[in-house]
Design a binder for these strands. Structure first.
Lengths: 192, 192
DNA sequence: ATCCTTTACGTACGAATGTACATATAATGT
DNA sequence: ACATTATATGTACATTCGTACGTAAAGGAT
């Protein structure tokens, strides 16, 4: 009812923030951050809200359920990664350049971003039990394979995709990761 | 205080079960079952107790914390899988037999057991945040590589291990798994 | 200006969870 | 037989969670 008088020092700003367009997007990004940092098990409405710096009620307003929020988050993540993958393969002019692009992709995923690796594995686990997320992974895989098929035949692309997956995963979990040279050799060996 | 008289029909057996040696082992196995069926997030004291058919209190008696129980479970799982892996490689008489053994391993993992695949990925996720579990995965990987090095040089073993991982994971998640012939070709192609 | 719709916010509640713990029973040693 | 120890069991409690919901403020139409 009462308004704070202008001259007052104004102790507690009761309801500060307002008018935050794009908040829905920020919540999705915050969800990905939380998943990467705390794992899916530690991803709660409250933690997401804390990271996005919004009140709890905002999360339930923008998303009807936590599951929906998580699905949107994983969907955004997969789309982002798939786009990068596709762009690099599209930029390769010939097969040799494509081989180098693959090597770069693996090396960047490994050395560049522990976050992406964690998100990927979290998605795999979740997809094992959630049909919506399984669809996300399948579309992702299809796009990856399609990108590889710009330069390699279908069977080669299929196996190469698996090799990329294994190299990434193995090295992220290992205390003694393969050297870039070893990664390069493994890929070239399969593609020779 | 009072004892049920012999002639009585005896309505409710208050405390039926007792003297259950090996219960600790059963709890570990039950934990693996629950992880595979419900995921790590759905793995609780109560659910493990239900599967093992023991009261809740029994789980907290045998294990000081849920984390300890999970660590023992994953440790047992990794040891079991690694042993099978090692046995098959040890049984191979020459390199050709070893190649066939690898193909069999991948095919069996894929077609044989969705359970194992789920447990593996759950372990990977957990290992990303739990040092104890990370040690479990690293020892597992070391044993696998060692087994492969019975027949292949170190670099080959390293890449082959990754390829096996990727093939298994990809096919478990895919709606259109690779045929056994495709799997065989991919492995032989890398080892050629 | 007045109304209506959308967006935002705070609080509350039932359900589930990890764990502690008092009690009870079997096993074992003497 | 008795005492001591290891094992087993049921219950309770503080905490955290997803979600519901009443209220408040902003945007936009008229």
């Amino acid at each position: 009812m009462s308004r704070v008088s202008a001259g007052d020092g104004g102790a507690v700003p009761r309801r500060a923030r307002r008018h935050d367009p794009g908040r829905r997007d920020r919540l999705i990004d915050a969800a990905l951050t939380v998943i990467a940092e705390r794992g899916l098990a530690g991803t709660t409405h409250r933690e997401i809200a804390r990271v996005a710096d919004v009140p709890l009620g905002s999360t339930t307003y923008h998303f009807t359920s936590l599951e929906e929020l998580l699905a949107e988050a994983f969907n955004r993540y997969a789309a982002t990664v798939a786009r990068v993958f596709d762009e690099r393969m599209a930029a390769a002019r010939d097969r040799d350049a494509a081989v180098e692009a693959v090597i770069t992709l693996v090396s960047d995923d490994l050395l560049g971003s522990q976050r992406d690796l964690v998100l990927t594995v979290e998605l795999y686990v979740a997809a094992a039990r959630n049909p919506v997320l399984r669809a996300v992974t399948q579309e992702w895989m299809a796009r990856s394979r399609q990108a590889l098929e710009r330069h390699f035949d279908a069977d080669t692309a299929r196996g190469l995709d698996a090799l990329i997956e294994g190299l990434t995963l193995h090295n992220a979990l290992s205390t003694e990761p393969m050297t870039p040279a070893q990664i390069r050799d493994a890929i070239r060996r399969y593609l020779r």
